[in-house]
Deep mutational scan, measured.
Amino acid sequence: MSGYILFSSEMRAVIKAQHPDYSFGELSRLVGTEWRNLETAKKAEYEERAAKVAEQQERERA
């Protein structure tokens, strides 16, 4: 899992709640824009969280 995927899943729900009429493409475009504009430190937080999720998933598969 990547930081972007984690961010995307969280942001998509927020944007969808604010704009229920937006298409999947419109939501994706907005999520991508939000990610590109996100501060580097915040991106790093998402990357760290994603790494922890990936480690947990790997342990569960073992």
Rank of each mutant, 00 (worst) to 15 (best):
S8M: 11
G3R: 00
R61F: 08
Y22A: 15
E10I: 02
L30Y: 06
E58A: 08
L27F: 06
V53E: 14
K42V: 07
K52L: 10
S9C: 07
E47W: 03
S9T: 13
R49S: 02
G32T: 13
V31H: 01
E26P: 01
Y46T: 01
R12M: 13
E10M: 02
S9K: 14
T40Y: 08
Q56N: 13
S9R: 15
S23F: 01
M1K: 08
E55Q: 13
R12D: 05
S28C: 07
A41F: 06
S28H: 05
Q18Y: 03
R49A: 05
H19E: 04
Q18M: 07
S28Q: 10
A17Y: 04
D21L: 04
S23D: 10
F7E: 02
G25S: 14
N37Q: 12
I5C: 12
E60P: 08
E34F: 06
E55I: 11
E10Q: 05
L27V: 14
T33L: 14
Y22V: 15
E34T: 09
W35L: 00
M11V: 07
E45S: 06
Y46V: 01
A50R: 00
K43G: 00
S23I: 02
N37D: 06
A51L: 12
E26L: 04
A13C: 06
A41S: 11
S2R: 10
P20D: 02
R59F: 12
V31A: 05
S23T: 10
A50N: 02
I5H: 15
E60R: 09
K52C: 07
K16A: 13
Y46A: 00
K43P: 00
K16H: 09
K43L: 01
T33Q: 15
V31T: 06
K42S: 05
E60M: 09
F24H: 14
S8K: 13
A41E: 07
A51G: 08
D21H: 10
G25Q: 13
T40C: 11
S2P: 05
A62R: 12
K42D: 04
L30T: 12
E39T: 15
Q18T: 08
Y4P: 01
K42C: 03
K42F: 01
A62V: 07
A13P: 15
E55A: 09
R36G: 08
A62D: 14
K43H: 01
T33G: 06
R12T: 13
E34C: 09
T33N: 13
E55T: 11
G32K: 15
A44I: 06
I15N: 02
E26M: 10
A41Q: 10
R61E: 13
E45L: 08
G32D: 15
G3N: 02
K52V: 08
A62W: 12
E48R: 13
Y46R: 00
V53Y: 09
S28L: 05
P20A: 04
R59Y: 10
M1S: 13
Q57Y: 08
A41N: 08
G25T: 14
E47K: 05
A62L: 11
Y22L: 15
S2Q: 07
V53D: 10
F7R: 02
I15E: 04
M11Y: 12
R36I: 08
R49W: 00
N37F: 03
L38M: 11
L38N: 01
E26N: 04
E58D: 11
M11Q: 08
N37R: 12
R29Y: 04
E48M: 09
F7N: 03
W35C: 01
Q57I: 13
K16L: 09
L27M: 08
M1E: 06
K42N: 03
R49F: 01
I5W: 08
P20T: 03
F7Q: 02
A41R: 10
E10G: 01
E10L: 00
S2H: 05
K52P: 01
A41L: 06
I5V: 11
E10V: 01
A13N: 15
I5A: 15
M1I: 09
I15G: 02
E39P: 15
E48G: 07
K42R: 07
W35T: 02
R59A: 11
E26W: 00
V53N: 14
E39G: 12
H19Y: 09
A51I: 08
E45I: 08
E26D: 06
D21P: 02
A13F: 03
G25R: 12
R59L: 13
W35F: 01
A41I: 06
E45D: 07
E60K: 08
I15L: 10
F24I: 11
